[in-house]
């Protein structure tokens, strides 16, 4: 009979063993029991999982991964694992903890007692191109010049207009991101600027915030949003496990 594998949800610092209940990924037709596999003060949050079982990023698998991380967050600071890690047995998990104990500890120390808050800002306008062109004299003049003639603008001219637009957009994003990040420096310990996902995105920033300063962070969002024109839409969410601040590539010596 093949050994039962272990699914990994994340890493915590703990001097004792934990049992988080049957809230894990499905195993043998029912939600698996989530508990800790521990080496001294470093523990991996795991549950039994077929080592050769197919594991796909489906909602039924992603949901428990996320649920476990949220549950653990209630009582400990967790360094979350990316979805899809299965060790072939518990010993392998313990070996991984032993080999990487120092780096895992350092990572846990860095995020200890902190949560991740995300702030996404976007331009709430129907047409981002029109909005920008209208706000920029040089862009307006160039557009009128190439579209105002009897013949259609050349390919090269359109490309040039597009390039100018992109440049303005990028510059505006950078300036506003700097302005916003600066306003949050006093209530976060780290921040990470992520690339925006679409044209209307102004910024996507993750902040690492002390648990106790969450309220202050939220209040700051309202304050900062109040200093921006109405076209700027602020979305914030949290607390999340520090997904954006994990910088841990766990290495294993060759067997």
């Amino acid at each position: 009979m093949p050994a039962t594998g272990r699914y990994l949800y994340g890493l915590i610092r703990s001097a004792e063993d934990w049992d988080f209940g049957c809230i894990g990924l499905e195993h043998d037709g029912k939600p698996s029991r989530v508990y800790t596999a521990r080496v001294a003060s470093v523990a991996a949050v795991v549950s039994e999982h077929g080592a050769r079982e197919k594991l796909l990023p489906l909602r039924k698998n992603l949901e428990p991964h996320n649920r476990v991380i949220r549950k653990v967050m209630e009582s400990a600071t967790i360094v979350p694992m990316s979805f899809g890690h299965v060790a072939k047995c518990e010993d392998e998990v313990l070996k991984a903890l032993r080999c990487n104990r120092d780096s895992i500890r350092a990572e846990l120390d860095r995020v200890d007692g902190k949560v991740e808050m995300t702030l996404k800002v976007k331009w709430d306008v129907d047409n981002i191109f029109e909005y920008f062109v209208a706000a920029d004299q040089e862009l307006t003049a160039f557009r009128d010049q190439i579209f105002g003639r009897s013949q259609a603008p050349s390919h090269a001219e359109k490309i040039e207009l597009g390039r100018m637009f992109e440049e303005r957009l990028g510059k505006e994003r950078d300036e506003q991101t700097e302005r916003v990040v600066e306003a949050f420096l006093s209530c976060c310990s780290e921040f990470k600027v992520n690339p925006v996902k679409n044209d209307k995105g102004v910024m996507d920033v993750a902040f690492l915030v002390e648990r106790g300063r969450q309220k202050a962070f939220e209040e700051r969002v309202y304050e900062v949003a109040g200093t921006f024109p109405t076209q700027y839409l602020f979305d914030f969410s949290g607390p999340w496990a520090p997904f954006n601040f994990v910088d841990l590539d766990i290495q294993l010596p060759a067997a």
Partner: peptide
């Protein structure tokens, strides 16, 4: 988050 971020293990530990 769950798909794109978080800690990653590279090595023989994972189903081999």
């Amino acid at each position: 988050r769950v798909l794109n971020k978080g800690a990653v293990i590279a090595g023989d530990i994972v189903i081999s």
